[in-house]
Design a protein around this nucleic acid. Structure first.
Lengths: 207, 207
DNA sequence: ACGAATTTGTCAATAGTTGCACAAATCGCA
DNA sequence: TGCGATTTGTGCAACTATTGACAAATTCGT
């Protein structure tokens, strides 16, 4: 049963499956099952089988899934069987943390450039081998390099402006850390990370 | 129509509504409508009305919602009509960024303490008026202070261990930045933030 | 070689979520 | 005052997602 339009909620779980497979492989495991994956992820085995079945048949009855094989397939499905350049806007504390984060490389991403508007920061080194660039040059650089993915890590009151610039310059996917809902044209996908919102979700359940 | 067991997906949207209301209030607006909120958040007005209706009747037909009134009610529903102490474990780049983050205070949270296991970091200042403490003392400090919420910002291979310690010490809600699915007993709620997973979700849609 | 034990992929059933549409309430203005 | 324009809260219908159950395929031990 291959693709007719996979639900977004299913797509959102694939990176979690991929992550789990990578850990299993690092543990020198070769075979796993929907049961084992589900137990590790707190998801029912039926859901995992159903999710994967949207993309093909990856398992073997009686045996389970070949970890390396399924990992390779999930990477291809998510298009992370290649390296993506990501442009980071905002070189505050969060921007510095993201620029230095070691977790992106193994999962298909490389911070290609960092921009900020603070003249005191422009020209300063950041991360491992980057230099903070002037946000005034952002649009030109995005166009020139053909970057398609951006991370926004600027204050909330500047996020929409930055997003507009990025979209205008051709960015097609944005990971937004500013605590504001970005308005972007369809065709540009946005994912939002807001730690305070997550914490508030949690406190609902704390009497 | 007040509570019988509100769907978790509805609870997850409340912080977004609250965030939007706070911006409207900062803009000196007094009244809004489900239509306006929906337009700003990319959500249908019907969904906003239905979500809110789980908790009571906050609007006025023909007029809309009093922003300050609804904001107050949402804060009470989410239990952020008070300040919560949050314990942060991990003082790497991300830990430093979270300790310094100015966005928590206005939304009900205060980083109360930061722990790390690196002897070179213990005793060093972090954030505005905190000092990094030894993770060996984490359990005792959590019990002694009665902290209920924790943020985990340690490497993946130590996250489960830290989580176990926290749960043992009485923590009931965890925001986990480590790229691994934590196994916690029911009664402990976990939210996960994994930037690389979000980026992979996005790249699925980039041919 | 055979039977018991696994495990997949999928169909059908259940459960959950969203959107439509409208009565009822309110407002603003002539 | 009275009428048209708004806007809520909700019943219902449409849609989406999850789970249960099982035939078919495979493995493993005897």
């Amino acid at each position: 049963m291959a693709d007719k339009a996979v639900p977004d909620i299913v797509v959102g779980r694939l990176p979690i499956y991929l992550r789990a497979l990578t850990y299993l492989k690092a543990d020198n495991r070769e075979i796993t099952s929907s049961q084992e994956l589900g137990d590790r992820l707190g998801i029912s085995s039926a859901q995992i089988r159903k999710d994967l079945s949207h993309f093909g048949e990856f398992g073997k009855q009686g045996t389970g899934y070949d970890i390396a094989h399924l990992e390779r397939n999930l990477k291809a499905i998510l298009h992370v069987d290649r390296m993506w350049d990501v442009v980071l806007v905002g070189a505050g504390d969060l921007g510095h943390a993201l620029a230095a984060y070691r977790g992106f490389a193994g999962r298909g991403f490389r911070i290609a450039a960092v921009f900020d508007k603070d003249p005191a920061k422009i020209g300063k080194p950041i991360g491992n081998d980057l230099v903070i660039e002037d946000v005034a040059t952002l649009a030109d650089r995005v166009r020139e390099q053909g970057w398609q993915i951006a991370i926004i890590a600027v204050p909330a009151d500047q996020a929409q402006l930055v997003a507009n610039t990025l979209v205008q310059a051709g960015i097609r996917a944005i990971l937004n850390y500013a605590p504001i809902t970005l308005m972007c044209p369809s065709g540009v996908r946005v994912e939002q990370i807001d730690p305070a919102a997550h914490l508030q979700h949690l406190t609902y359940y704390l009497g």
